[in-house]
């Protein structure tokens, strides 16, 4: 059974790679899924929902990344571990495995390091790896699960691996993926028109790739400046906060547009409550165009077609 799974994984990775290569000429790429071992995913999900990961044992990852709202928070800002609200909107985790950078500024390029930051950050989990390891080893059920998943022992590397495997198993196909793969009946004519407008207006020069975004950084306010000088906060400086380089001011990671209709409010400062408003902001500040309402509606329909299909 193990060999079959392994060969299947290998084959699907190979096919994933092959299809990857052939789509380099398109701005948007369809999603390719591949299987992970089921036990690892179950273990990861259990850890994800477990309050033991936080210091005060009150909240877990799922407290802010709700399953029903595309693993994001329906609020503008979530509550942090120190009781104050966090400065930036909580991003959705559903397609996080397909991104090349993580966090709003793209500070991390490695999920392991990002997870390490989350666990040890006093505003988020406010915990340490030793505490978590001690807590988990005390519970027999976890020991059993870890051995079932094929891990030798419980430590930072195996816990991170289980969580990340769970996260990587979350992506699901959308109607748009099926359309790109050849089923032309999946999109309505409005949605197809919206896709064409998306490419023509130039949205796909940044929101591109398999995750419709997530593989580059771009300035927020390309054609017109978005931030008013007097009201700008530290969070608005974007990647400048990490690199301390003047040229990186107001640069953010281009977010993925998959499942976007479910992750309102939008932008790092949650300044757009509806998808239409977000699209208008993008037009005005990133493309410099004032579009007509019909185009905005068509694009909104197209973006809705990017939603994951839940069975």
């Amino acid at each position: 059974m193990q060999t079959i799974t392994k060969t299947f994984i290998a084959l699907s990775i190979l096919l994933f790679e092959l299809s990857y290569m052939s789509h380099a000429n398109e701005p948007l790429l369809p999603l390719e899924l591949f299987e992970h071992t089921k036990t690892k995913i179950q273990l990861g999900e259990q850890l994800f929902n477990d309050v033991l990961l936080s210091k005060n044992k009150i909240f877990s990852c799922a407290s802010c990344h709700h399953k029903n709202t595309a693993y994001a928070d329906a609020k503008a800002f979530s509550l942090g571990a120190d009781g104050k609200i966090l400065p930036m909107n909580t991003p959705s985790l559903e397609y996080v495995g397909l991104n090349y950078y993580f966090t709003w500024t793209g500070k991390f390029s490695n999920l392991n390091k990002h997870l390490n930051m989350l666990i040890t950050n006093p505003k988020i989990m406010n915990n340490s790896w030793e505490t978590i390891i001690n807590r988990l080893t005390d519970i027999k059920k976890y020991q059993h699960l870890f051995t079932l998943s094929g891990y030798q022992n419980i430590d930072q590397q195996t816990i991170s691996d289980a969580l990340i495997t769970f996260l990587l198993s979350l992506p699901k196909l959308s109607r748009f993926d099926l359309y790109l793969k050849g089923d032309k009946n999946q999109l309505t004519s409005n949605e197809i028109k919206g896709y064409q407008l998306f490419k023509d207006y130039g949205c796909s020069s940044c929101h591109q790739g398999v995750n419709i975004g997530g593989n580059m950084r771009q300035k927020f306010g390309v054609i017109r400046p978005y931030f008013i000088e007097q009201e700008v906060q530290k969070r608005d400086y974007g990647y400048f906060n990490t690199s301390k380089n003047e040229v990186d001011k107001y640069f953010f990671r281009v977010p993925s547009l998959r499942n976007v209709s479910r992750t309102a409010p939008y932008f790092h400062d949650a300044s757009a409550n509806t998808l239409q408003k977000a699209i208008n902001v993008m037009f005005k500040y990133q493309l410099g165009i004032l579009p007509n309402d019909e185009d905005v509606q068509d694009i909104e329909a197209f973006l809705k077609s990017l939603d994951a299909i839940y069975e």
Binding site: Y20, L28, L29, Y100, S109, N110, G209, N215
Partner: peptide
């Protein structure tokens, strides 16, 4: 403009890291 998206490039960056 032979490649219309940066996925391969980002992948290469990741590998290099």
């Amino acid at each position: 403009n032979l490649n219309q998206n940066f996925d391969n490039l980002a992948n290469a960056q990741k590998n290099l890291t």
